[in-house]
Design a protein around this nucleic acid. Structure first.
Lengths: 146, 146
DNA sequence: CCCTTGCTTGGAGTGCGCTCCAAGTCCGTA
DNA sequence: TACGGACTTGGAGCGCACTCCAAGCAAGGG
């Protein structure tokens, strides 16, 4: 999936005002298809994320089906944001590992987020440069037509 | 190549002040390795771009070797900028076709660039949203440590 | 009891954008 | 004339991020 595609794949996670989770804590045992609907990720992708270690351990029903919690939804929201920056999945897996390791990794996690932040700032600058080129070209086409 | 990688791959094409072409018009018959050095793209990639129709017809020496012109360099600069926006290669090939078809396609080309422009604006907004999330997280880690 | 629906798994397949390989040609220098 | 280095081609291979498949299990309705 290119970054360009990502832009339209998201149902919930791209809006700047974040919707609250569909159910209150205590009743948050979502099936995989509910999470798929709410997150815009496919059930396939959700299972794959778990397989590669990008999800914290997801709870299961008595029959072995996944039951996602509000915490899981919050985590997916963060993951979606990080994906949007172009961060490779492997790096996000690393971040997930740090979270699982607990409090001792807080400094390293912060470093990782700071590096990502720099990256995002850089890309915004790049895109603004591209915008200038685009506007220049568009201007040429506009005046050429007249 | 992810968008994240793109950021460091470019030698010339990412700077906002564009360097002039290495040689003046009339002496602009660059070999593929010269273009590779100056553009930051590999010779492999340059040949591949030509194969898929992303380059205008490149001139050849008597022995069949490519000789790139200043126009080709300019085109590659534009392509690099468009790649940076996440525009799929297939879309750029379409744009290249329009250019080859001549003046009659100016309106369609302008449409394409306008759509790309909207896309870029959208992505900048996304990234700024992500920045806010990142700053929030970083802030949490900072105050938690203190 | 069967049918449908939704879930489970490991592993295979897909699309994109390169990236590299093998085998051969051409050219400048010694 | 021999050698090294840069170039040519078609086609195969790779890494990433999914995306799908086959086979099977569990629960609910007619």
């Amino acid at each position: 999936m290119t970054v360009m595609d990502t832009a339209r794949a998201d149902v919930l996670y791209c809006q700047n005002e974040v919707k609250p989770n569909p159910r209150p804590d205590g009743e948050d045992r979502y099936t995989i298809s509910e999470v798929a609907a709410v997150s815009g990720l496919s059930a396939h992708t959700l299972r794959w994320y778990e397989r590669i270690g990008l999800m914290p351990h997801v709870d299961r029903s008595q029959t072995g089906q996944r039951r996602f919690s509000n915490r899981d939804l919050d985590w997916l929201r963060l993951v979606a944001k990080l994906r949007l920056t172009g961060m490779p999945v492997a790096d996000m897996v690393r971040y997930a590992e740090l979270v699982r390791e607990g409090e001792s990794t807080v400094a390293e996690r912060k470093e990782l987020l700071l590096a990502t932040r720099e990256n995002v700032l850089g890309r915004i600058a790049e895109l603004q440069g591209t915008l200038a080129v685009l506007d220049h070209k568009i201007d040429i086409y506009t005046t050429a037509k007249a």
